[in-house]
Amino acid sequence: MGTVEYIQHHLTNNAVGSGFWTFHLDTIIVSALLGMLIIGVSMRLGRQLESGVPGGFQNFVESVLDFVSTNVRDAFPGHNPLIAPIALTVFLWVWLMNFMDLIPVDLLPYLFQLAVGDSHAYLKVVPTTDLNTTMAMALVVFALVVFYSIKVKGLWGYTKMFLFHPFGKFLIPVNIVMTLIEEVSKPISLALRLFGNMFAGELVFLLIALIGGTLAVGAAALFWAPLQAILDLGWAIFHILIITLQAFIFMVLTIVYLGMAHDEGHD
């Protein structure tokens, strides 16, 4: 199997359907499983909540909650009880989906291929390397931004933002274009940032995996295999930072965008 083939194989989703009505089964199932993991663990935790002195795991979850709510308090001006759970969901889900990146790149596809009995079965395990996932989250956030903008500023207030911002009332056409770009760029940048980071990270993992896999032949493997291990370890450790950072950025930007939607005194 050639290098290009190897990489392409890894970056292709296991899909059914055709055209627009294609479903990336691996993305959907993995992200759904991770979502269920969050819910399941939460429910188990919820049954043994300790209101006095919390135990180990509850302590950990509480510190995560505290971290999220601190961020919400810092970046969100108004009061909306839905913002914090949204931010928490974004943080936990994105982090878990990103975490799939740290599982050795060939492990899950290999096991899957064994299970299915097809050595060419596709499996892309990191849902955030699928633009559909990141875009879906960004669009939900965008829809909430629009919803809360209209709810807080009123329909006329929201329209006014497009008409008179940023150049005042004499450049209305320019304002419309500018604000439109500004607004639309929010979800797109949100989606593409996460997607790009995770896709690139995955690609680096694949390239490192290629060192020992394809490049090494015979005795050279004695040199290349340890190098691959060291590089992989280094990148994985660095990646712990990246996945957390990307989850954090997505969460903070979600809070900030929703905060801007709640900001009444914009003009």
């Binding site: 979502g35 969050i38 939460s42 909650l65 759970p85 559909n132 989250m137």
Partner: peptide, 26 residues
């Protein structure tokens, strides 16, 4: 890596997850 119907599923999944997290965890 093209946009397709997976997007819709993921939107639904995300909204549901927000609802669940709010109800069960947060």
């Amino acid at each position: 890596m093209s946009i397709n119907a997976t997007l819709i599923i993921q939107i639904i999944a995300f909204v549901l997850l927000i609802w669940f997290v709010n109800k069960v965890l947060w």
